[in-house]
Amino acid sequence: MREIDLPSPDTMAPRWSALAAVLAAYGPRWAESAYSDGSTWHYDDGGGNWADIRFLGDGRAVLLGHDHEYSETYFRSAAEYFGESETDLLSGCPPWWAEAIGDYLDRIDSEGTWIGFIYGYDGSTWTRADYDGDDGFTSLNVPFLGGQPVLKQITSQLTMSIGGRPAGAAPDPQLLDRVLAECPELSADTAQALLGGRDLDIDAALRAAHQFRRSS
């Protein structure tokens, strides 16, 4: 097992929540790229690359995902499919990792949903199996590892032209800091300040942000 340096889920929660709120404000299609259903947090970049966190009790969690361009770890039937040597992403890992993501493991064979990385969080430390191949996580550029990357992505979203809607003005940096400080408990006033006047769904934004609240 190798210890890896990643923020705790509690540290990532405000960032993931803030992006999910902004995307949800644009409508259901955009909302599919970052959301929480309570037990799982999802992110994808719209190009087939994704990362999810599945939560268990006692503060434990499993982070998994795949970058179809850069993941060089071929797990389970992916090795045979691509004619590569297998990387066992669960080698030496506690049984609860596999139990937590059993549905994902089933989809490897049933849907060809490849997995490039699997990391476990025991409540204090992230670890992974001991392998040397590039698992694609770094290339995925998940924005929740730092506050500035996710605020940059939010700014990009709010300033692009979408579906004939003119590009919006860049939000005030202090307002973005306020959004990040509040999430996942984003207030209606702050959501209105960020999204009001942009013809976006503020109620959907609030619902998406609040889904990242966790009791354990």
Rank of each mutant, 00 (worst) to 15 (best):
G46I: 05
G48F: 14
W50D: 00
W50H: 09
A51F: 10
D52Q: 07
D58T: 09
R60T: 14
A61Q: 07
V62D: 02
V62A: 04
L64C: 08
G65S: 04
H68D: 04
H68T: 01
H68Q: 05
H68N: 11
S71D: 00
S71L: 03
E72N: 11
E72W: 13
T73H: 03
T73W: 06
Y74H: 09
F75M: 07
R76E: 15
A78G: 05
A78F: 13
A79Y: 15
A79G: 03
A79N: 06
E80I: 06
Y81K: 07
F82E: 03
F82V: 02
G83Q: 10
E84T: 00
E86V: 06
T87W: 13
L90H: 08
G92C: 01
C93D: 02
C93T: 09
C93M: 12
P94E: 06
P95E: 07
W96Y: 12
A98W: 05
I101Q: 03
G102P: 01
D103Q: 08
Y104Q: 05
Y104V: 14
L105T: 01
L105W: 05
D106G: 07
R107M: 09
I108G: 01
S110M: 06
E111F: 15
E111D: 10
T113S: 10
T113I: 11
W114H: 13
I115P: 07
F117V: 04
G120L: 02
G120T: 06
G120S: 14
G120W: 03
Y121E: 04
D122C: 14
D122Q: 01
D122P: 08
G123N: 06
G123S: 12
S124Q: 08
T127E: 08
T127S: 11
A129R: 00
D130H: 13
D130K: 04
G133H: 14
D135S: 08
F137E: 02
T138C: 00
P143I: 05
F144A: 03
F144V: 01
L145Q: 04
